[in-house]
Design a protein around this nucleic acid. Structure first.
Lengths: 357, 357
DNA sequence: TTGTACGCGTTATCAA
DNA sequence: TTGATAACGCGTACAA
């Protein structure tokens, strides 16, 4: 509350000009050892702290990047991406301003508005709620980077090759002898209103499931494909996966393997299996996606990991490149990969299954 | 990159002074309908955005509060608290600047340093890494609020009454007929170096366990009390609970109920039980603490919930009260409460147990 | 080697 | 009803 000391005050105490104080502060230019000592003493005794607001106003550079995320509480994925971005930003002397839009385009708009007023040097979208918000920033000439999903091709993005890891998962199932493989996943048509760009994530995962089936010589069974939302913001997470799995178990020929395209869905799948008194992977194998909840589930979930922190780190780097005017910032694509843990095992033999029944 | 329009420019275009523009911007004072229209037109065509940096410098009020958290990725608890604080801050026109210290006092120090330079109006600590950082801010006359744990009595805090919910959990176990109840929890002596204030959380939970035992007429069994860290920042979460539960199961008389004082520990407990081929709650009942992972585990975990978002909200309110100079900001204490789901059931009868063995 | 002085964009006081 | 003008705290070009 008592106002902090200013540079002017330090100068007055040391009996020099602000320019000289600034020289010792920045460590540039010539300063006699004598005056330097006096100034340093003054800085110490007054506990002087530079005012970042004034500096940023003067330099026209806020050293801040805004990071819009869906909702840090809805999916640990976002927390990890945010942390990756924060870490690398800090190293470059930047701070990140985090903002949760919680799925609301209106709220996102307000957040962006404040980012602009705050004169952030760039904005990261770890999934924009609305494409309009992204394009608005582009029009304002503010560097933008889209992480995980791109809403427009007019700004660079760092996305994940979802297919590579998903195909690995499918191959794993098939190698283990599974022939009745179900999918519990996000519906490209429902997620983000089926936007042609945003749905790429779901298209890739779903595509890999189907391609994996074909590659294994298995035919596609519509009853084994359960598509919907990942989770709803209102109710608790997991319910979607649970519901899908219940339906699958109630079907004529339940699958022996389930590929859930999100760990939160996988958690629900495990709950339904548990409730049915079945064991994983003895009766049914499960593979998830993301590697968020995976390590905490029982059994420890085999899952397709996304490089979450790296997404954040690369996102920041792309932003920095634009801030510094580097020519043509390109988009980046990172791989996903299968992490084998304990939820995927050999298909139960007919005898095993009979014994258990 | 092209610099944004300034108020001066708007004034020039509208052919008035900055003072007049400011009047219409703020909606105060007298402005003729005619000039108002001209000014509004100028604002619209130039897409003018006020510069928050300049405003804050001038007003000596950053409308920003810093929020130091342990690590938003280590425990979803922190993400929820952060979100609660952000939500209510936004409503009051404040923004929050989030900072993860990741358990490092040194990193926390740097974060604080930047908060000060940024002239944040207050700082929230959702668990400080070092008491020194809290006291430093107090000396700088910057309002501080401690959330979940207090490192010093010299600043207000919003904490949780851990005992009330924990006792409820113990009573629940006892009502269900359990007599062999184990604890898997944080060790007051290890957590935060056994600091007398910081360990209050663990003291309360552990105390409630013992008190609950006594209240149920049960004797305390040292073999049933497994204390340690919650999780380590390096390796994956959950391992601690898993290890503890393995030991418990290997003992002579395994417990029929386990109270884990953190959902992450509970997740590990469930993993060990699952691996042993036992069922929850049929063979063993489990209750967790926090209500973070709970909803996603199998079976859905009965747990003692902390009002996480409310912790954040109240934390901000306490900070705001200090900023506005309200007399004597008091500390606040919120209740915890048992949330019954599917992981706690009646103690298995001797016959049931024999049949299953 | 050191100092002067202006500008960054707002807010707000005081005159007109 | 409107306008000049002085801060806010820092950085820096230029002068001394």
């Amino acid at each position: 509350m008592t106002k902090p000391t200013t540079l002017i005050e330090v100068a007055r105490i040391a009996g020099v000009s602000t320019a000289t104080v600034n020289r010792v502060l920045k460590g540039v230019g010539y300063v006699s050892a004598d005056t330097r000592a006096r100034i340093e003493a003054a800085i110490k005794t007054t506990r002087y702290r530079p005012n970042a607001l004034a500096r940023e106003l003067r330099k026209q550079r806020s050293m801040t990047i805004g990071h819009v995320v869906s909702a840090i509480t809805a999916n640990p994925f976002f927390a990890s991406v945010a942390r990756g971005a924060e870490d690398v930003a800090l190293e470059s002397g930047f701070r990140t301003l985090l903002f949760n839009h919680n799925g609301s385009a209106e709220r996102e708009r307000q957040g962006i508005e404040r980012f602009i007023e705050r004169r952030v040097d760039a904005v990261l979208f770890t999934v924009a709620a609305s494409r309009a918000d992204v394009t608005m920033l582009i029009e304002e000439k503010i560097p933008v980077v889209q992480v995980e999903r791109a809403a427009t091709r007019d700004a660079p993005s760092v996305t994940v090759d979802n297919a590579v890891g998903a195909l690995e998962a499918m191959r794993h199932f098939i190698t283990l002898g599974h022939r009745r493989i179900a999918l519990v996943g996000g519906d490209p048509d429902q997620v983000y209103y089926g936007d042609p760009l945003m749905r790429a994530v779901e298209d890739e995962r779903l595509g890999a499931y189907r391609a994996g089936l074909a590659a294994g010589g298995l035919s596609w069974n519509p009853n084994y494909e359960r598509l919907g939302q990942y989770y709803r913001h209102e109710d608790g997470a997991g319910v979607q996966g649970y519901t899908h799995m219940r339906a699958l178990l109630a079907g004529a020929e339940p699958p022996t393997a389930v590929f859930a395209t999100c760990d939160i869905l996988a958690a629900g799948v495990l709950q339904a299996i548990y409730e049915a008194g079945l064991r994983v992977p003895d009766d049914i194998s499960v593979i998830g996606f993301d590697d968020t909840l995976a390590i905490n589930l029982a059994p420890r979930l085999t899952t397709v990991a996304q490089p979450m922190e790296e997404l954040g780190r690369e996102g920041f780097k792309l932003a920095l490149a634009q801030i510094e005017g580097d020519a043509e910032p390109r988009s980046i694509r990172l791989p996903s990969r299968l992490v084998r843990r304990d939820s995927a095992g050999p298909v139960p033999s007919a005898t095993t299954r009979r014994k258990r029944a």
